[in-house]
Design a binder for these strands. Structure first.
Length: 596
DNA sequence: GGGGGCCGGGG
DNA sequence: GTGTACGGCCCCC
């Protein structure tokens, strides 16, 4: 038996025979530092919970079906302990196959936790976190024992027992950015006819390169004979650089699909994965996501839309916002002219293209740490986190916490519940005072951005403490709307926000005490991530798609918020401030100086 | 006023 | 993949 320690980069599962095998993709720590590893776990089974009408009949009925086994469990469901059946299935794909049959059984009232992807279930149940270190016992496999074709220098490891999470430093990650240019003389590029003319690459460890079919005296340009060869070189460089993160700008929507289409046309295999697999795509609603196994493809465009508030999100605009300097730009419809020119203008095009890749690396270095910390806190793969809304992150964080607390996760709304929620009269939002016109001096701002989390904690606003009938002794009663929340016990969401805020205070203290600048910086990002999470937590009550949706909770929080902001403004006026403008989580006031 | 359709980024 | 998901704006009735 051997032990391996690695940074968990990604996770998925494959099927061997009729069994699911979980694969943990990582980068080894300690001996063999930096080498890629794929850890196989054959011993995790999918399951769902069943709410029985009559538990014994129900257990019999379910056992008749093609299931692995049935267990009786007791779990807390929205504040009450109840009996459930845990139905363990043979394969993850049996879940969608069998859940409707199970739900329709006469002895079954409902099914729960039936739509949690297998790899996410694994991360939650095993208590391990992507971008953190994990330790496993087991043995190395040779190529013949492995069912997928893999590069020979990747360690394939058969796990035995349980993975162990380790307290770990923030890992040093290798970033490789890429950007393609296309010769499109007419309209937007069409992969059917418009060739890729260059691929630019930039890493956070100094690589700066442009691969192209054109010759150049510029030393960062590598010339290849054909476009097919260019794509092959791209794959070779990705493999030899072996980055943890592959990043682009709008690459989910443009670069990745374009590379795929051209490669298909030219007969080039894009074996970019550490397991030797080809570039894949995942449907994600309105956008597909480019997937490279064992590395994490991140599209910065999506992240910038989330983190920055701008009128536009072009690479140039984002770069200017973050670094305060202009980046040169060639309009897309002129690129072919620069290419065809072959001289000075082509040289400009090479520089521009490399600049784009370098800018992506710089933006990534600045903006990725926050998402990486959120990954370590929420505990879902970085690939997913980078494509989630904050609301979804909150939900997955709560799912993990529900498991830790022994709580049953609420179901997602059915489509009819969803449209009911959407059509309910919108709740009153934050307090808004229209601005007083004019130019004001001596402005002070009062910021209550953390107001909602504090209200949720102090008023114990949670779906499991919400009650219809109650008096002021045992309940907090919201102003205006009158919703009631038990003072005791502490609700699920208030308890979690309380822990987040406590943890944040601990990290801030540690940060202030730290002498190490790198550590200080990491701790600072950690506390920012916790703040973000705490401040987004309120959203789960008011967003119609969420499992913990409870409009009365959202309604009560904003009611207490308005109450609080108005009282504070009143207080401020007593001290000589005059409110000019207020909106939800803060207000601006001028200080009226005494004339005497 | 609310439902449907389109767009964002990329070249 | 234990899927199929955004939010803002414009137009139109």
């Amino acid at each position: 038996m051997e032990t391996k320690r690695f940074v968990l980069l990604d996770i998925d599962y494959i099927t061997e025979g009729d069994k699911a095998v979980v694969r943990l993709f990582g980068k080894i720590k300690g001996d063999e530092e930096g080498k890629s590893i794929i850890v196989l776990d054959k011993n995790f089974k999918p399951y769902i919970y069943v709410v029985p009408r009559d538990i014994e009949t129900c257990a019999d009925d379910v056992s008749e079906l093609e299931v692995e086994s049935v267990e009786w469990v007791r779990k807390n469901d929205n504040g009450q302990d109840k009996d459930f059946l845990k139905v363990i299935l043979n394969h993850p794909q049996d879940v969608p196959k069998l859940r409707d049959i199970i739900r329709d059984l006469e002895s079954v009232e409902d099914i729960r936790e039936h739509d949690i992807p297998f790899y996410r279930r694994y991360l939650v149940d095993k208590g391990i976190f992507p971008m953190s270190e994990v330790e496993v016992d087991g043995k190395c496999l040779t190529g013949n024992d492995v069912k997928f074709s893999c590069e020979e220098d990747v360690c394939i490891f058969q796990m035995e027992g349980e993975p162990r999470p380790l307290e770990s430093e923030f890992p040093e990650l290798k970033i490789l950015s890429f950007d393609i240019e296309v010769r499109n003389p007419k309209g937007m590029p069409q992969a059917e006819v418009d060739e890729i003319i260059m691929i630019s690459l930039s890493s956070n460890q100094g690589l700066e390169k442009v691969i192209s079919t054109a010759k150049s005296s510029l030393d960062f340009v590598e010339t290849v004979k054909t476009e097919a060869r260019m794509l092959e070189r791209f794959v070779e460089i990705v493999k030899s650089e072996n980055p943890d993160l592959l990043i682009g700008y709008n690459s989910d929507n443009f670069d990745m699909p374009y590379i795929r289409d051209r490669a298909a046309k030219l007969g080039v295999k894009l074996k970019l994965g550490t397991d030797g697999s080809q570039l894949k795509f995942m449907r994600r609603g309105f956008a597909n996501a480019g997937l490279v196994k064992g590395r994490i493809h991140v599209d910065l465009y999506l992240l910038m839309r989330r983190y920055l508030t701008l009128d536009r999100y072009t690479l140039e605009r984002v770069y200017r916002e973050l670094f305060g300097e202009e980046k040169r730009d060639i309009p897309g419809d002129e690129i072919f002219e620069y290419w065809d020119d072959g001289g000075k203008k082509l040289e400009m095009l090479f520089n521009y293209s490399l600049d784009d890749a370098v800018a992506v690396t710089k933006i990534g270095e600045k903006m990725l740490p926050l998402s990486l910390e959120l990954t370590r806190i929420v505990g879902q793969p970085f690939f997913d986190i980078a494509r989630m809304t904050t609301g979804q992150m909150v939900e997955w964080y709560l799912i993990r916490k529900a498991y830790e607390y022994g709580d049953m996760v609420p179901n997602k709304p059915s489509s009819s519940q969803y449209s009911q929620r959407r059509h309910k009269k919108r709740i009153a939002g934050g307090y808004v005072k229209d601005p007083v016109k004019g130019l004001h001096e001596n402005i002070v701002s009062f910021d209550f951005r953390s107001l909602y989390p504090s209200i949720i904690i102090s008023k114990n606003v949670s779906p499991d403490t919400f009650v219809e009938e109650c008096d002021e002794d045992t309940c907090h009663i919201a102003p205006e709307v009158g919703h009631k929340f038990l003072k005791e016990p502490v609700g699920f969401v208030p308890s979690i926000i309380g822990n987040i805020l406590k943890e944040r205070v601990r990290i801030k203290t540690q940060m202030k005490a730290s002498e190490n600048p790198r550590e200080k910086q990491i701790l600072d990002v950690q506390q920012q991530a916790l703040k973000r999470l705490a401040n987004s937590m309120y959203g789960v009550y008011g967003y119609s798609r969420f499992r913990w949706y409870r409009i009365e909770c959202a309604d009560a929080v904003t009611a207490w918020g308005r109450d609080f902001i108005k009282k504070t403004m009143k207080k401020a006026e007593d001290y000589g401030f005059k409110a000019i403008y207020a909106d939800t989580d803060g207000f601006y006031a001028t200080y009226i100086e005494d004339d005497d």
